[in-house]
Amino acid sequence: MSHVISEQRMANQIAANQRHLPEADAVAAVAGHIDRFWNSFLRSRLYALVDAGAAGLDPVVVKAVERIRT
């Protein structure tokens, strides 16, 4: 199991647990969670996944990453 997939799996899982929310709220919740609980190592690897095309990432995660970065 590669580590890249770890971040993808974890981030998608966070998004799945916010799916009951309207998308804007879900994006905010995912961004808030990642920002608050994830270490910079994990965040940077997640950003790298997004930068590489976001394959396999939940769209909410992608938007959440954009939100964290701005």
């Binding site: 770890s6 608050r36 609980f37 994830w38 270490n39 910079s40 190592f41 994990l42």
Partner: peptide, 8 residues
Amino acid sequence: DPGLRIPN
């Protein structure tokens, strides 16, 4: 910045 969790 939070640190690494065990699995991380």
